[in-house]
């Protein structure tokens, strides 16, 4: 029952331990955040004014750094005027957990500040649509091309050298061009996600396809499978579970391009929400929105993982997870 029980090299843990550790992996950073936020002597480089006293520019709830505060305190003491009071605080860009949780809730219940503004869920829906179309278009081209390149050397040799080059070009660099070609609304945003995802996708899927055990193809050929049928009846079903796993990972990559994509043309979606809130220094809302992206991404991935297990019951490695 000792500690060595937990640290066995590359051995499975019991499912209770695994679940406990999964919870702990979220609790640890939250705990750290709580410590920094709620324990006054950890960090807290600022002072939050509760009583301005006679300092003419101090206001209630104003954040000043400790050096300035001490200076003003001394000034007031020397002048014999009313002293300001304040308590240690963290900078405005680090709100406490409870503030973010509150913001998370109120973000959905508060109507937009501007008349023509969007509710948070509307912004999110915009973002999800951009991701969806971007990833769909990328996959419609990338998956077939990747599988073909992994199957036929001709296709691989014809496309891969150029793709290897193109994938190094940063997708955001095409922002201006995309706006010129596709206008200022969703077109260029979707294009950026496609550019960011597609080229990696082709290479990743081509590699996955190449990993298919060649002896399966040989076995199929000795059973009288024609060359044309090999692709449809051996290659595609054979790589499907791995291809599905690749798509899950690539969808995560598509999300990372979202923020950049949404800054192009008219700012929109969750990014617009974040930049707006940051402008007014509502950092609790910013954190809430970032959290939201994380939650959507993770739950999407978990859903796909669960679905994968049911779609591919023969896949031993996926079912072991």
């Amino acid at each position: 029952m000792g500690l060595s029980n937990w640290f066995v090299v590359r051995q499975e843990l019991s499912s209770r331990r695994k679940k406990g550790l999964a919870v702990a992996s979220f609790l640890l950073p939250i705990l750290l955040w709580c410590l920094v936020s709620y324990v006054p002597f950890i960090w807290h480089p600022m002072m939050k004014v509760s009583e301005p006293g006679d300092v003419d520019y101090f206001q209630v709830d104003m954040l000043v750094d400790k050096v300035t505060y001490r200076q003003e305190l001394e000034n007031m003491q020397e002048a014999g005027k009313a002293l300001p009071t304040a308590s240690p605080a963290n900078p405005i860009y680090l709100p406490a957990p409870h503030a973010v949780v509150e913001a998370f809730y109120t973000a959905f219940t508060t109507p937009p500040a501007q008349r023509d503004g969007l509710w948070l869920h509307q912004s999110l829906w915009q973002s999800i649509q951009v991701i969806f179309w971007g990833f769909l278009i990328s996959s419609l081209i990338g998956v077939p091309l990747g599988v073909l390149a992994g199957t036929y050397t001709v296709v691989s040799r014809l496309f891969e050298p150029f793709i290897e080059f193109f994938r190094y070009l940063p997708a955001p660099a095409f922002g201006a061009l995309a706006v010129a070609v596709l206008g200022i609304y969703d077109g260029p945003k979707i294009a950026i996600i496609v550019i960011g995802t597609l080229f990696q996708q082709i290479l990743v899927i081509a590699n996955t396809t190449r990993k298919l055990d060649y002896s399966l193809l040989e076995a199929a050929m000795t059973l009288g499978t024609s060359k044309i049928k090999l692709l449809r009846y051996v290659v595609i079903p054979g790589v499907l579970p791995d291809l599905y796993r690749d798509q899950r990972i690539l969808l995560g990559w598509a999300w990372t391009y979202l923020i950049v994509a949404e800054l192009i043309g008219t700012s929109s979606g969750i990014t617009w929400f974040i930049t707006q809130q940051a402008r007014y220094e509502h950092f609790d809302n910013v954190y809430a929105a970032i959290l939201m992206i994380g939650i959507i991404g993770l739950s999407c991935d978990l859903l796909l993982a669960w679905l994968g297990k049911r779609l591919f019951p023969w896949n031993k490695s996926a079912n072991k997870e």
């Binding site: 055990d213 002896s215 040989e218 076995a219 000795t222 009288g224 079903p237």
Partner: peptide, 20 residues
């Protein structure tokens, strides 16, 4: 000339199709 169904083969590594 090339593989065909007239010459069936059994491999050491089984080579069954895992998805079937």
């Amino acid at each position: 000339d090339g593989p065909c169904r007239q010459r069936g083969m059994v491999f050491q590594g089984y080579t069954l199709f895992p998805w079937l």
